[in-house]
Design a protein around this nucleic acid. Structure first.
Length: 780
DNA sequence: GTTCTAGAAC
DNA sequence: GTTCTAGAAC
């Protein structure tokens, strides 16, 4: 086997000499090597080491140093291992370090030993799926370290949580990842074929690109306490350099930046307008400037890319108010800018909130008169400076502090993801241009000369580009949200995140994830039988429904839902009929203690699956009024009375428990038909709150405060700014302090103790109902 | 190994 | 909306 093959058919070319010891190694012409095996019990380290020691066909002497057996056949110490390795090296042998070495610190001494003795150090990461390692470790017999059976599963688990992927920066000249038995065999063959004076190319090999990972959660893990718990480095993919903009496209001196593509006085005026607005409204702190991702050196099709930019930007702007996006390109002839501009106007996106800009992204303020505190960088996977284009320009303009700050945030980037780097105030880009954050983004590559070439697979490519922009915008929103938190009185009507700098992530201990003890649910509104009967009785007529107008439900009920011109855009499932049935026939259910109040207009019901200590519904009895989409001006009196009824019940609950805080509101897209107002206490202390959708439906813009809905209908005649269901998939954030949490149990554990005050926008317009607000209301 | 999520079915 | 469960994550 040719050692240059790198042991993996998908291996990228070795990285530049500056990354490893490549050039040096070649000069030395190959010599001994220390191979540090990295992997949990059960990954096959010993088998690997034995296979190399006994199977070497090229005459290189190997020694296996195994901590499990080094103490006269029994487990020994790391010091013994170091001594044995050192002795073997001095005898001219190469060494395989057979111990877990999962943490950087655990393997550092072996790397150092290589340095002291001028021997190359390789890492072989045996990255088999955890469950494979566990099942092997559990079922093995006669293990040298006596780690087998049930105990092994625990140990493997604990170890894997602390795993730190080996990095070249630790001092390894070569890192090879084996993700399955095939990879392992290739690696063994490679080392077996290594003669005494052969050397292997340096760099990273065999990294498997992992499937999509939710960026918010990645951020959470990345930002988390570094002393314990799981860590994910972003170094598990490979990408090449990206030169997003051709170097020859220099900006003219004098009038460097222009709004849009055409020159002229009008544009200059427009530029000045923007600059003025920026200063007066502080819009700069809510502006993201970004280059087109992947369309330059990564050769992504411009037409497709412009579609994706416009789509993702439109989605984003719909979700978040008070933010502005600026697509920047150096050339006034930029095709991507004109395509985007064209498509933006077709889509009727607010032109003040999404603009294209010709100019240098590193001089937007000084040369373009544009305030943008956040800029995006079309980064390379290593997050290194250089490579030309935007990446080089930004790293140059920002100075060394950006490199250091970047290093603190991430080691590398996967295509389709981004990472926020707070720009230190010493950076010239910060001081001169007012840039406070740089978001590095990596898009898909369609350039055969670059790594991770997607071979014209635009299905995959488009998906990754979508992910890249979504990730960029989400990270931008997090920064804005965090800034808003600091500036009292300013609002951004969306949930977002906080920047890594501002969020102190607490990592809950395992007890935090303990499931809550189950307790008996409230008596059901309807028995299963009753529900079934109601469904059966009405099902033929109820299955199709248009949410377009209030007339549609009636139509659907009258016939088969296929009346001419009516396109059913939402189907209510049989389970979604319960509230309708109750609203139409409350008498049938009056004996259940779930019904608190009935009037001609509404029914007040304890939620069958309360998502908080107190959670009731005020259900409208108007036939055909199913969701906010159906609500018109004529329904305002009803909405106001529903609100008053809700308020009354909240006050009643406050008399019982003064510590509660309530919100009254509607779901943007309800799951049950028949318009219903939620009155829910903000403790969210309930076993029925089980998943992300539950949480986000009450803590993101998906939850529409009743006061806002009423105001909106008063002003516009309809509830226009309803959020779509996409926000339900957003990362989990505390509704008080906005900290992010990796899963529901951890989130619930956090909110049970979080004492932060509520975000400022909730504290306005009586969106929150507490004892103090009701007392205030009584007085006025 | 257990915990947790997310998609399908209802 | 919930329940169930496969499989991903830990």
């Amino acid at each position: 086997m040719n050692p240059d093959a790198g042991g993996s058919s998908s291996a990228p070319p070795p990285p530049s000499a500056s990354q490893g010891a490549g050039a040096e190694e070649e000069e030395r012409g190959g010599k001994q090597v220390v191979v540090v095996l990295v992997g949990p019990p059960g990954c096959g380290k010993s088998t690997f080491a034995e296979a190399v020691v006994t199977g070497s066909t090229a005459g290189r002497p190997w020694v296996r140093v195994c901590q499990d057996t080094i103490g006269n056949g029994k487990a020994g110490t790391k010091i013994q291992c170091l001594k044995a390795a050192s002795d073997a090296l001095k005898e001219g042998k190469s060494v395989l370090i057979d111990r877990c070495n999962l943490e950087r610190e655990q393997r550092a001494d072996f790397v150092k030993l290589g340095g002291t003795l001028h021997v190359d150090v390789h890492a072989i990461a045996l990255d088999l799926p955890a469950k494979v390692c566990i099942s092997r470790a559990v079922s093995r017999k006669g293990h040298e370290g006596n780690l087998q059976g049930g105990k092994a599963a625990l140990v493997v688990n604990r170890m894997l949580q602390k795993k730190e992927t080996p990095l070249l920066t630790e001092g390894f000249s070569r890192i090879m990842s084996c993700n399955d038995d095939g990879d392992i065999k290739k690696a063994v063959d490679l080392y077996n074929a290594l003669g005494p004076s052969d050397s292997l190319p340096s760099g990273m090999f065999g990294q498997k690109s992992k499937g999509p990972v939710q960026v918010g959660i990645m951020k959470f893990l990345k930002k988390g306490d570094t002393s314990s718990g799981p860590k994910i480095t972003l170094s598990e993919s490979k990408q090449g350099q990206q030169n997003p903009l051709p170097k020859h496209e220099k900006v003219e001196a004098g009038i460097t930046c222009r709004m849009e593509v055409e020159k002229g006085l009008d544009d200059k005026k427009e530029n000045e307008e923007h600059a003025k607005e920026s200063h007066s409204d502080n819009v700069g702190s809510r502006t993201l400037a970004f280059p087109s991702i992947s369309t330059a050196d990564f050769q992504f099709d411009l037409d497709r890319a412009s579609d994706i930019i416009v789509d993702t930007a439109a989605d984003f702007l719909q979700k978040f108010d008070n933010v502005r996006l600026v697509l920047v390109d150096l050339s006034e002839k930029s095709r991507i800018l004109s395509l985007v501009k064209q498509k933006t106007s077709k889509k009727r996106i607010d032109s003040s909130r999404f603009v294209t800009f010709v100019g240098d992204i590193t001089q937007l303020h000084t040369k373009g008169g544009l305030q943008c505190s956040v800029i995006a960088n079309a980064a390379n996977w290593r997050l290194k400076p250089g490579g030309g284009g935007v990446n080089a320009a930004i790293f140059n303009a920002a100075g060394e502090s950006l490199q250091h700050a970047t290093k603190k945030c991430a080691d590398a980037l996967r295509p389709g993801t981004s990472v926020v780097v707070p720009l230190p105030s010493v950076s010239p880009l910060h001081q001169r241009e007012g840039v406070t954050h740089v978001i590095h983004v990596l898009g898909p590559n369609m350039n055969p000369m670059r790594p991770d070439y997607l071979k014209n697979d635009y299905t995959k490519g488009s998906k990754i580009l979508h992910e890249a922009y979504n990730s960029l915008f989400e990270n931008f929103a997090s920064i804005v949200q965090s800034n808003m938190g600091k500036q009292s009185g300013t609002e951004m009507s969306a949930s977002g995140g906080t920047s890594p700098k501002d969020t102190k992530m607490k990592r809950e201990d395992s007890h935090g994830s303990e499931r809550m003890k189950k307790h008996k649910l409230l008596p059901p509104t309807m028995t299963a039988k009753q529900q079934h009967e109601c469904t059966k009785a009405n099902a033929p007529n109820y299955h199709e429904k248009s949410t377009v107008s209030s007339a549609a439900p009636n139509q659907a009920r009258e016939g088969d839902g296929k009346k001419s011109g009516v396109v059913a855009s939402k189907t209510w499932g049989s389970w979604a009929q319960a509230l309708y049935e109750l609203a139409m026939h409350p008498d049938k259910y009056k004996n259940t203690d779930s019904i608190l109040e009935t009037s001609d207009e509404f029914v007040v019901l304890k939620d069958l699956y309360p998502k908080a200590k107190k959670h009731v519904l005020v259900i409208s009895r108007t036939d055909g009024l199913d969701s906010l989409a159906d609500v018109k001006k004529e329904h305002l009196p009803l909405l106001r009375r529903m609100h008053s009824a809700g308020l009354k019940w909240a006050q009643k609950f406050l008399e019982e428990d003064a510590s509660l805080v309530f919100r009254l509101g509607y779901h943007s897209v309800p799951s049950m038909r028949q318009l219903h107002l939620h009155i829910i206490s903000q403790d969210f202390n309930s076993t029925s709150l089980k998943n992300k959708k539950h949480w986000n439906s009450f803590t993101t813009p998906f939850f529409r405060d009743s006061v806002d809905v009423i105001e909106e209908i008063e002003q516009h005649g309809s509830a226009t700014s309803s959020s779509d269901e996409k926000v339900l998939a957003m990362e989990l954030r505390c509704h008080r302090c906005r900290s992010a949490h990796p899963n529901i149990p951890k989130l619930k554990s956090h909110i049970s103790t979080c004492k932060s005050s509520f975000p400022s926008h909730l504290q306005q317009k009586n969106r929150l109902i507490s004892l103090s607000t009701t007392m205030h209301m009584d007085c006025t």
